[in-house]
Simulated scan of single mutants.
Amino acid sequence: MRVADILRKKGSSVVTLPSAATVAQLVESLDDHKIGAVVVVDDDRVVGIVSERDIVHHLRSGRDQSSTLSEIMTADVHVVTVQDELDQLALIMTERRLRHLPVVEDGVLKGIVSIGDVVKARLEALAAERDHLEDYLRQAP
């Protein structure tokens, strides 16, 4: 299974904000959309990602919600392509402790994949394999 398969099922919609947006705007966006991360985009280019963890770290350090995303975002964004394999995503997410990976093709944001998407796809694949094996065993003499 590839990233393209996940996006085909979940869609390619991605919540984005510019790096000049404030932490307060980020919190509102996360709550409105019931999501855990926002991709930071300037001039149609992915420049960062910011998650709930980033907000907690930011606020715990004593700074307020008027700070901009450029101050708290992760600028070294690990991205994947639609051709990447699900197993590779699971490995990247586990090793790097990431929960969200933007999907970028030719510099264009195509979607986002979360750890929940990966788990769901793996569970669906296991269920399909189980069903196939059960059908095979029912047909065996």
Rank of each mutant, 00 (worst) to 15 (best):
M1L: 15
V3H: 02
V3W: 00
A4W: 07
D5K: 09
D5E: 14
R8W: 07
R8N: 11
S13Y: 10
S13F: 12
V15Q: 04
S19V: 10
A20W: 09
T22L: 06
V23M: 04
V23E: 01
S29W: 03
H33K: 08
H33T: 02
H33G: 00
A37V: 08
V38A: 05
V39S: 02
V39C: 04
V39F: 03
V40D: 01
V41D: 04
D42F: 08
D43S: 13
D44K: 15
V50C: 05
V50Q: 03
S51F: 03
S51Y: 01
S51A: 11
I55A: 09
H57S: 15
H58K: 10
H58P: 03
L59Y: 06
R60Y: 07
S61E: 10
S61C: 08
G62F: 09
R63N: 13
D64F: 04
Q65Y: 11
T68A: 05
S70W: 03
M73T: 01
M73I: 07
T74Q: 07
A75F: 02
A75G: 12
A75K: 12
D76M: 10
D76S: 13
D76F: 09
D76E: 14
D76G: 06
V77C: 08
V77A: 05
H78G: 01
V79W: 01
V80N: 01
T81Y: 11
V82F: 06
V82E: 15
Q83C: 10
D84W: 05
D84F: 04
L86Q: 07
L86D: 05
D87H: 06
Q88I: 15
L89D: 03
A90P: 02
I92E: 04
I92R: 03
I92G: 01
M93L: 14
T94P: 00
R96C: 07
R96Y: 10
H100D: 09
H100N: 12
H100A: 12
H100G: 04
V103R: 00
E105Q: 07
D106H: 13
G107Q: 08
G107R: 09
V108D: 09
L109K: 01
G111P: 03
I112L: 12
I112K: 00
I112M: 11
I112W: 00
V113Q: 00
S114W: 09
I115A: 14
D117E: 05
V118C: 06
V118L: 04
R122V: 13
A125K: 15
L126R: 14
A128M: 13
E129N: 10
R130S: 08
E134G: 00
A140Q: 14
P141E: 08
